[in-house]
């Protein structure tokens, strides 16, 4: 077990997310209690990862691994320590040349086989809160070899107000997390399946807007 990750989340991240920020969960019954599973969400802030992980208890968090770009999160020894040791990310090499010659999902597949939970942001990068960007198909490529692993669509609102892209100061807002019904990879074409998944997240976004008509996301 990864002690430093456990302590980091039990002592710092979870108290911060739950007491200082506050999370309001809708559809919590859809959250899988144990792996293997893949959580899929829209991505607007660095806080998204911490919010999703904090939905679990610290003991379970050690089994959760966000997938993140290696060139951004692992390019210095210090960052490697923070993100790989403390957060436990699975680095993803975004190099087109590499992608042709080796299986970039090797680490992710290993983790799924070990019944771990993955977090993937298929928008690829942090975007604008009101508009979902088109999902990348990587997630479909990964799940087609795991048709029995549930994929859970999630919509997050509020983190982009607390800590938006390119902003230094943190301003507390309650984060709304909408969790949808699990989805499984079918024999559908990868592009089509990705669109279905995107549609599910979009539905959750619409549900959020229905519950909070005054907030135009």
């Amino acid at each position: 077990m990864n002690i430093s990750k456990y302590l980091f989340f039990a002592g710092i991240v979870r108290p911060f997310i739950n007491l200082v920020m506050g999370v309001s969960v809708h559809g919590g019954e859809h959250l899988p209690l144990s792996g293997p599973a893949i959580l899929v969400a829209n991505h607007n802030s660095h806080l998204d990862t911490l919010v999703l992980m904090s939905l679990y208890s610290s003991a379970k968090i050690v089994h959760i691994h966000p997938m993140a770009a290696a060139d951004y999160f692992c390019n210095t020894p210090f960052k490697r320590f923070i993100f790989q040791k403390l957060i436990g990310i699975i680095p993803l090499k975004r190099n087109p040349f590499l992608q042709m010659h080796q299986d970039i999902f090797m680490e992710a597949k290993k983790a799924l086989k070990k019944k771990e939970i993955l977090i993937i942001f298929p928008e690829g990068t942090r975007g604008n809160s009101s508009r979902l960007q088109d999902f990348k198909t990587g997630i479909a490529h990964l799940t087609q070899s795991f048709p029995k692993v549930p994929v859970i669509p999630i919509f997050i609102h509020g983190t982009e107000k607390s800590l938006p892209k390119n902003e230094g100061i943190f301003v507390p807002f309650i984060t709304d997390v909408y969790i949808g019904k699990p989805l499984f990879h079918t024999k559908e074409d990868n592009k089509k399946w990705t669109l279905i998944l995107q549609g599910n997240v979009k539905q959750l976004q619409e549900q959020f807007l229905k519950d909070h008509p005054a907030l135009n996301a």
Binding site: K161, I174, A214
Partner: peptide, 19 residues
């Protein structure tokens, strides 16, 4: 206060004032 600021519409430009 956090609950209040989270339920009303706020502008991106208000972040400093909210802080």
């Amino acid at each position: 206060l956090k609950e209040y600021f989270s339920m009303i519409p706020t502008r991106h430009a208000d972040r400093r004032a909210l802080f």
